[in-house]
Nucleic acid binder design. Structure first.
Lengths: 228, 228
DNA sequence: CGCGATATGTTCGCTGCAGTACAGACAGGT
DNA sequence: ACCTGTCTGTACTGCAGCGAACATATCGCG
């Protein structure tokens, strides 16, 4: 069991107080924690789970814009004083998370200035990651984007294999399923990964980083610089 | 001379206090107010100027991700406790703005809770607009994106014509110059706009809205709902 | 006026991805 | 063992946008 990095940065007393207020819950892949523009009832601090945030497009398609693992928190809108978000939150890796209802969370934000400060910085990082993602979509080809996506997921899953079908990846990246098959085929030919029926294993992480566009490193550096 | 909508929402006393602390400055198209990852020295509340925020990509290319006019503020990073941003800020429409140095701004944030609250909401809107932009880039064709861009600029310029060359638009949208020539040609054929040597005039705004993808309306509605 | 600089228009070949269809591979249930 | 549903691989057409080169048009300036 891991801890949550945002909470780990708090002073022991603040952290204990906050964790005591939370429930530890088990999240299962596929769970939808919020629908777009519905009231947010809980915030989540993932421990070893991770959660996608998806923007719905034209009522049919989706696109993943942010991945929240134990380095982050789901529910930043509440920090900004708004109790909904246009993004859908979907569990993408099963595991544990600390959960806190919205009202309690607001109370904790008032009581623990360091928490607000930390989460503000996290929001800054998220914003910049969003900017990087937009640029990546515009300029980089699908295989680069796929490599980046796998690296980000790998960081949060901290084990080298996970359950991801091509169809699922296509929904995340907002492309056709066949596009993923091709891109993944390229990466597989270079012995960077292997997969069969929804089970992807990263064989050569360093190689994958080399193939991926710089966007991965930019996002990662941003996090370390502001929150590390 | 317009006022700034974020400030206009404050109570008279707060607003007057804040405005008294600001300098009114004249911004000229092309001015670069910040470079990426450099220290932010001032924040700006545009009056009748407007400012692009651009993400640099691979050290050569740019992509505009946000446009800040009198409905917003430039310098939200400071609200989040970080004194830089990875985005470049470039004046895209000449005009006036209220300027405040970073230290004073921080002080005002402490003194005027309503300001912090308002700016937090604005950050939320920006974040969602960023999400919408990313989706738009991924799913929508260039002529739709161009229509959206022109509408957003038109909103902030509040007069129907502005100085924009195809080359400049290409840099904003992260595409080739020829791509803009084609897309603009399509819109011109439908009598929605006319241009000659850098001077674009919107002829039929309603028609342009109809042609544009839904992203324009989504962004606009989001602003009105949260801040309107 | 003539010149150079800038802005726009057009063309060509190429690539990446969309859309669609279909075939083979494998897993789990009965 | 068989069937069925799911996952993956392959093949095709079509289009949008890239990169590059070149042609034309317009403006400002000497």
């Amino acid at each position: 069991m891991q801890s949550n990095r945002l909470l780990a940065a708090l002073r022991r007393k603040d952290r204990d107080h906050l964790i005591a207020a939370c429930d530890e819950v088990e999240l299962t892949i596929g769970d939808v924690l919020w629908e777009p523009n519905k009231r947010i009832r809980h915030v989540y601090f993932p421990l070893d789970s991770f959660i996608s945030q998806l923007v719905p497009v034209d009522a049919r398609e989706n696109l993943e814009l942010a991945l929240v693992g134990n380095e982050g928190m789901l529910g930043t809108s509440l920090v900004l004083g708004v109790n909904s978000s246009m993004l859908q939150a979907r569990v993408q890796g099963s595991g544990a998370a600390l959960r806190l209802d919205a009202a309690s969370f607001r109370r904790e934000l008032e009581h623990i200035p360091a928490l607000r400060k930390q989460l503000n910085r996290y929001i800054y990082v998220l914003q910049n990651q969003l900017a990087t993602t937009a640029a990546c979509i515009n300029f980089h080809s699908l295989d680069l984007r796929l490599a980046r996506w796998l690296l980000m997921t790998h960081d949060r899953a901290d084990f080298g294999s996970f359950h991801l079908t091509h169809k699922f990846l296509a929904q995340m990246l907002g492309v056709r399923r066949v596009g993923i098959t091709n891109a993944a085929g390229l990466l597989q030919k270079r012995k960077l990964l292997s997969y069969s029926r929804g089970h992807i294993t990263i064989l050569n992480r360093a190689g994958l980083e080399k193939v991926s566009c710089g966007c991965y490193q930019v996002s990662k550096d941003m996090y370390e610089r502001v929150l590390g």
